[in-house]
Design a protein around this nucleic acid. Structure first.
Length: 276
DNA sequence: ACCCAGGCATTGG
DNA sequence: CCAATGCATGGG
């Protein structure tokens, strides 16, 4: 029974708004590694293309086995506890309104650390529309296609063999091509970051060329799911905080008011701005 | 044609 | 420590 692979339900704590939670994969364009199609999300997991679609008490996953399940649980952030955050949010009028509007919003996580870092690099300085376009070309060039729509995000090893020219041909700047190759070839075990405190993870990541504080903060928030990640340098988050809290002048310092839920607060504030 | 967009490293004060 | 600069693409 352990490895049967066909469509099966996966429970997600309710309420869960599937469309809203995964809006990140369709809002700014097509992400070839996380393809939104016909009301569901397609992604290659463990070499197989998986379709995740909304169901009664969570999602249906097709196929589902115990290699796929932990990845999908991570992707959907099933383990993240929203209830304590929603209680906390009642003490802040802006957050209270956000959780009222978006009660089933469970921001997804990146299942793969290399994907998280490369995605950040593609998004540095440029619009997310532009970032999605470049990233999708990168995925198509170096990834492994699934059975129909999705392509497995490129493995570090495959990218390590590439040249700078291979990457600039996809729209990476010369500098970003350098960054991506450097990270693909870096002597850094992402697995062991799991056990390090936030500050140590940031120190190790920012030691890599191309990973600054912004990228490291999003790695903490969107890959490791650290509750206190606060990407204060993020342009959209800065706009959201300054618009929603008129008395705030220092966005970084304002993070303390959201302690210990900075990460979820950031996502809910961004959603508020996105659907303003 | 021009400007901006969910940064970063480098250079020069 | 802080200011100025170049970067490649996509959308307005």
């Amino acid at each position: 029974m352990a490895h049967t692979a066909h469509v099966a339900p996966l429970a997600v704590p309710q309420p869960y708004d599937f469309d809203l939670s995964l809006d990140r994969f369709k809002f700014w364009g097509v992400d070839r590694a996380n393809v939104w199609h016909d009301g569901g999300l397609h992604r290659v997991v463990d070499g197989r293309e998986v379709r995740i679609s909304p169901a009664r008490e969570g999602v249906d996953v097709d196929p589902l086995d115990d290699r796929i399940e932990p990845v999908v649980r991570k992707l959907l952030a099933v383990e993240v506890e929203l209830r304590p955050f929603h209680v906390f949010a009642q003490s802040d009028p802006v957050l209270a309104e956000a959780v009222r509007r978006f009660p089933g919003y469970r921001p997804p996580l990146a299942p793969d650390p290399f994907e998280a870092l490369v995605s950040s690099i593609t998004a540095q300085q440029v619009s997310l529309h532009s970032a999605f376009a470049v990233r999708s070309r990168f995925i198509e060039r170096f990834g492994v296609p699934g059975s129909t729509l999705a392509v497995a995000f490129p493995a570090r090893e495959a990218v390590a063999e590439a040249s700078e020219d291979d990457l600039t041909a996809l729209g990476f700047s010369r500098r970003k091509a350098e960054y991506v190759l450097g990270i693909a070839r870096a002597d850094l075990d992402f697995e062991e970051l799991e056990s390090q405190p936030d500050d140590e993870v940031k120190a190790r990541l920012t030691a890599l060329r191309g990973i600054g504080e912004w990228s490291a903060d999003w790695f903490l928030g969107r890959y490791l799911g650290r509750p206190e990640a606060w990407p204060a340098g993020d342009l959209a988050l800065r706009k959201a905080v300054l618009a929603l809290y008129p008395e705030v002048t220092d966005v970084r310092a304002a993070g303390v008011r959201f302690h210990p839920f900075q990460n979820l607060s950031a996502h809910y504030l961004l959603a508020t701005l996105r659907y303003r």
